[in-house]
Design a binder for these strands. Structure first.
Lengths: 208, 208
DNA sequence: GCCGAAGTAGTCAAATTTGATTACTCGTGC
DNA sequence: GCACGAGTAATCAAATTTGACTACTTCGGC
């Protein structure tokens, strides 16, 4: 799965209630259109699809106050909230995902309690270590002539290097979280669950 | 674009002439179904699409000799050959691609002359260095309070680390290529351009 | 002699993604 | 007073991707 659902759910959740263009704008501001598939078509499609599946609740709102076709506002249902957290956990843990997944997960990591975030990242490190070992074994079975693999061994080198650097980064973040960096879910000083409608999204544009 | 076209063109090219199942089998053997989107539907779709676009020539062959529906064999046209090399070059150079692109590029790197492969990888390193610097600047503009960015700065750290490890790997491969590792296109001892039909593909299964 | 598993070859519907395009409003200049 | 670019909000056709499914053959066991 791509990161689009996580991104859209996270963006809607930050507003409490949002219409497509707001989501699209937030994601564009984050540059997500460049490092993920967060393009208009995908965003609107994801909103509709998730509404159909009961993850989002759609409110048809009168023709927009500022030009354009009538707009629809969405908010997370309970199922949507659960799906959001599941996707977020998976984004931080799973190592076979494309990098946009992990990037999105990091972007929303403060929606998790500190303990859990650390635990997930530790799992990530363990998975990366295991994968590196597995790749190493798979590509150098006893008795097989290294010559035989030739340049294909370079793929192994690439993967091993990717795994090690990924684990390194995760260890760094674990350390920072362990020493109290950032304000995580449920901690005093946390951003309110839902942004006040009149205040701008600190991570997005200035339009309420 | 995904890696599917590069993979399919490369696989067909290695056989000189191949039908869909052969391609599918090769790619499965390389594990490409796991680290890329090389699934049956995508492979057959890519074959048909590229045939329609003149990159491949389709030969309808009598009902298969060994079960299943009638099969179609494909071979690269001149345009297909050009497209293949263009995709391969781009896979090795471009840094904004998903990792399956680079992996595929490495898998086929010996289809390029040594000089060119080295040059492309050097370009890659330069692009990665530039990207790392740009990310660093974009995320720490003068006057902006680091506190303001909070955990979002972790995305920057992730990207910087990705860029540096990617550049490191590329430098390693450049070095190995420079000291004569592997047999590249046009070099004595090179595998023949096209595999003999009766011999197995050394990088795939044993069926001709 | 035939049953089932494995292999061969490919198709299909549904979901998703892309990239362009539509449609309407507001402010700015002229 | 109106043309034009920028902003707002979304839709659409075409291409791609996914995952399951069809259909046919061969081979080993019983």
């Amino acid at each position: 799965m791509s990161a689009i659902r996580l991104l859209v759910l996270g963006a809607v959740r930050q507003h409490g209630r949002a219409h497509g263009y707001q989501v699209r704008n937030d994601l564009e501001y984050w540059g997500a259109n460049e490092w993920s598939n967060a393009k208009p078509g995908s965003i609107y499609h994801a909103l509709k699809q998730m509404a159909k599946q009961g993850l989002l609740l759609a409110h048809d709102v009168a023709p927009s106050t500022a030009g354009g076709p009538p707009r629809t506002e969405y908010e997370l249902t309970e199922a949507g909230e659960a799906e959001y957290l599941a996707l977020l956990r998976s984004a931080l843990t799973a190592i076979d995902e494309k990098p946009d997944m992990l990037t999105s997960g990091v972007g929303f990591i403060v929606d998790l309690p500190r303990d859990e975030a650390i635990k997930l990242l530790q799992q990530r490190v363990a998975l990366l270590d295991a994968w590196r070992d597995e790749v190493g074994e798979h590509w150098t079975p006893r008795g097989s002539d290294p010559e035989e693999w030739g340049h294909i061994g370079e793929i192994m080198r690439l993967w091993v290097s990717t795994a090690e650097s990924g684990a390194q980064w995760a260890r760094g973040l674990i350390e920072r979280l362990s020493s109290g960096a950032y304000v995580m879910a449920g901690e005093s000083g946390a951003r309110p669950e839902v942004l006040a409608p009149e205040s701008g999204n600190p991570y997005a544009d200035e339009n309420g």
